[in-house]
């Protein structure tokens, strides 16, 4: 199966490494023989219809910061349109406001009849309904399990829960950074600022942490889940968002004395909300550190919880691979000759 990669940051590179590590096993276990025919990063690209040597591309990127030739005025979308591939792997930087450049990349791929796997939440936040509509219109597949929960298959688990049942309530800890900060406020008696600094030092928070600690990242993931798992069509503007900046050490300690913990909870029932809440320490949702947890409340089968590591390059790369194997299966079932 021919792959094009756009975005070659932490996730993109992790995915390339994962392909190298797993090549033999993928062929024997899943019938997947991935061939990367194009890699595009910010300023450069590299193409070979016979398949690129990923080791070489990775070392070139490490050495020189580029993956190949300069783009010379070509846009990534134009390069994608001119590439013959079966699946585009989109891992460029997230932009919650415009969804770009990911949105354009995905549209270009669909138009060229490529399926798409993305871990980029930006396009999903801005254009979820449009992208699923365009995928259907072009008769291609669109998977994005890495967008929620990193390597933890939260969306697939939710899909299973909703089969023959109806998800009536979703609640979850969806942002690893916030959870890491709250956990360390609790454990190490740090105030918010110190805990944030610690998270930044440890690589769990960005230099500008606002998307994480102000609740936007959680809100986007909530929007994606509701759109994907329920018949409701929702957007960011439907979510009532508050973050964890206002949480003091006192709040955290007061909670602990009553057997509770402060967590940034995203929830959807009749309303969509992201806000700090008090959870019982014994609640399976009440995870610590960089973990995510989601509880699906189903009409007939009750509550179900899935817990797992919420972020990380390799974790997210593995979810991309999972999506890819699914797409391979669907293409094979369709009798496609393209892989």
């Amino acid at each position: 199966m021919r792959l094009a990669l756009v975005g070659f940051g932490v996730v993109g590179r992790s995915f390339a490494k994962l392909l190298q590590l797993k090549a033999g096993e993928l062929a024997s276990k899943s019938g997947l023989m991935p061939k990367v025919v194009c890699v595009i990063d910010n300023h450069s690209y590299s193409q070979d219809s016979n398949g690129l040597d990923l080791g070489k591309v990775l070392s070139k990127k490490n050495r020189s910061g580029s993956v190949g030739l300069p783009k010379k005025g070509l846009s990534s979308s134009e390069i994608i349109s001119n590439t013959e591939a079966d699946v585009l792997i989109e891992t460029t930087q997230t932009n919650f406001k415009t969804g770009e450049p990911g949105f354009s990349h995905i549209k270009a791929a669909f138009q060229s009849k490529m399926s798409v796997v993305t871990a980029n939440k930006g396009p999903l936040a801005v254009a979820f309904q449009s992208l699923t509509e365009l995928a259907r219109h072009n008769n291609v597949y669109f998977k994005f399990s890495g967008a929620v929960g990193g390597g933890t298959p939260i969306l697939d688990f939710g899909r299973s829960c909703s089969k023959g049942d109806t998800i009536v309530r979703i609640s979850g800890i969806l942002n690893s950074t916030s959870n890491f900060i709250l956990t360390h406020m609790e454990r190490d008696a740090l105030d918010f600022k110190s805990a944030l600094l610690y998270a930044q030092r440890e690589g769990y928070a960005e230099a500008d942490p606002s998307l994480d600690v102000d609740g936007f990242d959680s809100a986007v993931k909530l929007v994606i889940m509701v759109n994907y798992l329920t018949p409701n069509k929702v957007a960011m503007r439907d979510v009532d968002i508050s973050g964890i900046r206002g949480i003091s050490l006192k709040d955290v300690e007061r909670a602990r004395k009553t057997g509770k913990a402060v967590r940034l909870v995203a929830s959807a029932d009749s309303k969509l909300k992201v806000s700090p809440e008090l959870l019982d320490m014994t609640d399976p949702l009440c995870v610590s550190g960089a973990y995510n947890a989601v509880k699906f409340g189903c009409e007939f089968s009750g509550d179900k919880v899935i817990v797992g590591k919420g972020a990380g390059g390799m974790e997210t790369a593995s979810s991309i691979l999972r999506d890819l194997i699914d797409i391979r299966g669907m293409l094979a079932a369709r009798g496609s000759t393209s892989c």
């Binding site: 801005v126 254009a127 309904q129 449009s130 699923t132 509509e133 365009l134 219109h137």
Partner: peptide, 18 residues
Amino acid sequence: TDDNFGDAMPLVETSKLQ
């Protein structure tokens, strides 16, 4: 819209977004 010239059907969600 889709490519059905003469009686094209809008891709509703995509159109609304644009």
